[in-house]
Simulated scan of single mutants.
Amino acid sequence: MASSSSVQQAREILGKRLREIRQDSGLTARQLASRAGWHESKCSRIENGRTAPSDDDLRMYTRHCGATGQTADLIATARNIDGAYVEWRRMERSGLRRAQESVLPLWERTLRFRAYSSWLIPGPFQTRGYITALLRSIRDRRAVPDDLEAAVQVRVDKQRLLHDGRRRFAVVLEESTLRHRIGGPETMAGQLGHLLSLASLPNVSLGVIPLSADRSALWPVEDFWIFDEGQVNVELVSAFLTITQPHEVGTYGRTFSALADLAVHGAPARALIASAIASYA
């Protein structure tokens, strides 16, 4: 399975933590490997993030280093890293509906949503026509089982959360997302009109970064969602990335704030959307 830089970084952080546990115990890497019955290079590979430790590896570390109180937390951390990077082909092997449904528990328990997009209108803000055109393209490109209508309905049903007053949505779009054509001109005009209406909801903040904005300090980045303060989801070309490391979540939070500062809101944002609608006439 392919790896991402974030996953690799998480493995290196875990390895550093294990190295500190070993050093605190007074053992050398060679001594720990000998006691655990490992090849002498195994400790180095794990501590440098080149090898993902198994549950048994972590039990060995903590037992021989006198740190069994940390075993459960280390195992949970390692399992989270292993599950962070999920290839689309695995998630969609039974069709697109399952991929849509997989995020529902997370959405149900989240109260504060922050989203940035440089490619597409974000899911909860999409019309049925836009969703259908988008998922049809994904179905055809990835050659997944055809459950298009069911997948579309799951995404449409999820949009009820927008109208739950307990939840807040802050969205920042690059102006280019208004111009990337998904479906025909009629679909796009309808989508952007829908976006205008949603921007008037009291629990929705919509910002658009103009093409004319000075990007010297911060250029467009990958699309991402931040769920409360605990998780970030990133859609990559080949995979779905889940980030829960607090320092990484914080980095995305700060990046979102910086992108929001570049955006225009209110009447100027609506003017950019209206201009894009006019281009589809």
Rank of each mutant, 00 (worst) to 15 (best):
V7Q: 13
K16A: 13
R17W: 09
L18H: 01
R19E: 02
T28K: 01
A33W: 00
E40R: 06
A52R: 11
T62G: 03
C65Q: 02
T68F: 03
T68G: 01
T68C: 05
Q70E: 15
A72F: 04
I75F: 08
A76R: 15
T77W: 15
R79D: 11
E92S: 12
R98L: 13
A99E: 12
Q100C: 02
L106E: 14
L111I: 14
Q126L: 07
Q126E: 09
T127A: 09
R128P: 02
S137V: 00
I138C: 01
R142S: 09
V144P: 06
P145V: 06
E149M: 02
A150V: 03
V156C: 11
R160T: 07
G165Q: 11
R168A: 11
R168S: 14
V171S: 08
L173M: 09
S176P: 05
E186R: 06
L192Y: 03
A199P: 05
L201P: 06
N203D: 00
L206S: 04
G207D: 06
P210R: 00
L218V: 10
W219R: 15
D223M: 12
D228Y: 12
Y252P: 08
A260F: 03
V264N: 03
P268H: 05
P268I: 03
R270L: 09
I277T: 06
S279T: 13
